[in-house]
Amino acid sequence: MTEIEPFPVSIPEHDLEDLRARLDHVRLPEAETVEDGTQGIGVERLRSLLDAWRQHDWRSLEKRWNAIPHYRTRLDGLDIAFWHVRSPEPNAFPLVLTHGWPGSVLEFESVIGPLTDPVAHGGSAEDAFDVVVPALPGYGFSERPREPGWNPGRTARAWAELMTRLGYERFGAHGGDWGAFVSTELACLAPERVAALHLTMPVASPLPEDLATADDAEKAMIAQRDRFMSTGPTHVIAQAMLPQTLGYSLLDSPAGLAAWLSQALVGFSDTRPEAGGGVSVAQQVDDIALYWFTGTGASTARWYWEAVRWTPRDAEAQNARAVTVPTACTLFPGEPFPVARRWAEHRYHNITSWNEMEYGGHYPGWEKSAVLVSELRNAFREARDR
């Protein structure tokens, strides 16, 4: 199937009934024995999240989803689902937005309108985009791979073909989390086509000489990275080593899936009250329900197994894959693995802007959508005219 076909979403009613029954018979363990969060998501927090899920209106989410033009096409042997929204403005600039884990295309739901129709949202027609939001292989309504090899590099090649199929020879790319890896690879793969790149998580690490000459701000970043590596990357280790074993629980237990995803959705967002509180419970439940009804707990976990066998492990190897296209970066303080500009410059050779925000975390599309819209408009303004 090389043609592009509309793909409306409609989950069978018996799947909703099955979920309701499972939620009614959830078995929870006793409470954690500490209050500092070091044992993981607390039982009372999970109980509240499950109560919110019981009240969730999936049919309402389907209506929102289907109000956005949604399609499916076959790329490199796999059916990929994506939103594609053309702007009413004739000179709109094509932009592909790529999500990560434990997120989904839902991260970008609230930015599609302002990006495609800026005039209707207080902006200028000159900032209009045609927006493409594909679901990563094995995520959402994209097909689950049946063979190994679907890593960020292969996905970037598929994205390039998708943009060709949609009629876009030249375009911009944005990503965070795995979306940053895919978008970076896309810029390396097709620098003549990627007019500019915007990242909220540059894929870069300090070199030994960077560590030796770190200033106070960089030392604080290094300390934060070290803290994360000592306590935070449980999901990376588990999903990179035993995604299939973990997948059985994620597919069979709504409580297990909710706990696993919410741990990261909350843990990597900016939960300070003055920042807005991070990813809301409503946003979490939308995302968790999507994973549940698409049965993608194992296939999304398997992305880590694929990526660690593909991703260069050290900074020197990463930097060998240099990015030459104009690159704009927006950094948020809740990001668990911060990057200094000096480190990023080893790999991204044409950084056009580096903006460090006061609030926000790993999921700006959910946490700070207006900020993300503004940053995207600014990032691609010059690229339109090149």
Results as ranks from 00 to 15, higher is better:
91 N>F: 01
91 N>L: 05
94 P>A: 10
95 L>V: 09
95 L>A: 01
95 L>H: 05
98 T>V: 14
98 T>P: 00
100 G>Q: 12
100 G>T: 04
100 G>S: 06
100 G>F: 07
101 W>Y: 15
102 P>K: 12
102 P>T: 09
103 G>T: 09
104 S>G: 04
104 S>T: 08
104 S>K: 04
106 L>V: 06
108 F>Q: 02
117 D>R: 08
118 P>W: 09
119 V>P: 00
121 H>R: 04
122 G>R: 14
123 G>D: 13
123 G>T: 12
123 G>N: 12
124 S>V: 06
124 S>F: 02
125 A>L: 13
125 A>V: 10
128 A>H: 07
128 A>Q: 12
130 D>Y: 03
131 V>C: 06
132 V>N: 08
136 L>K: 11
137 P>D: 06
137 P>F: 14
137 P>E: 15
138 G>N: 11
138 G>M: 05
140 G>L: 07
141 F>L: 13
141 F>V: 01
141 F>E: 07
142 S>A: 06
142 S>L: 05
143 E>A: 15
143 E>W: 08
143 E>L: 01
145 P>R: 14
146 R>L: 11
150 W>L: 09
153 G>I: 07
155 T>N: 07
156 A>I: 08
157 R>M: 11
157 R>D: 12
157 R>H: 05
158 A>Q: 10
159 W>T: 04
160 A>H: 15
161 E>M: 04
161 E>P: 00
161 E>K: 10
162 L>N: 13
163 M>W: 03
163 M>L: 15
164 T>P: 00
165 R>T: 09
167 G>Y: 01
167 G>Q: 01
168 Y>P: 03
170 R>T: 12
170 R>Y: 01
172 G>D: 09
178 W>R: 11
178 W>P: 00
179 G>I: 06
180 A>V: 05
181 F>Y: 15
182 V>L: 09
183 S>Q: 11
183 S>N: 07
184 T>A: 11
184 T>W: 00
186 L>S: 07
189 L>M: 15
190 A>D: 13
190 A>K: 12
190 A>L: 08
192 E>K: 12
192 E>H: 12
193 R>S: 08
197 L>N: 05
198 H>F: 08
199 L>Y: 02
200 T>N: 15
200 T>H: 09
201 M>S: 13
202 P>F: 02
202 P>Q: 14
202 P>D: 08
203 V>F: 07
203 V>M: 14
204 A>M: 05
204 A>C: 05
205 S>E: 15
205 S>L: 15
206 P>D: 04
208 P>V: 08
208 P>M: 07
208 P>H: 03
213 T>Q: 14
214 A>D: 10
216 D>W: 03
218 E>R: 14
219 K>I: 02
220 A>H: 03
222 I>R: 13
222 I>T: 13
222 I>W: 11
223 A>T: 09
223 A>C: 01
224 Q>N: 05
225 R>N: 10
227 R>I: 00
227 R>Y: 04
228 F>C: 05
230 S>H: 11
230 S>G: 00
230 S>C: 01
232 G>Q: 11
234 T>D: 08
234 T>N: 12
235 H>W: 14
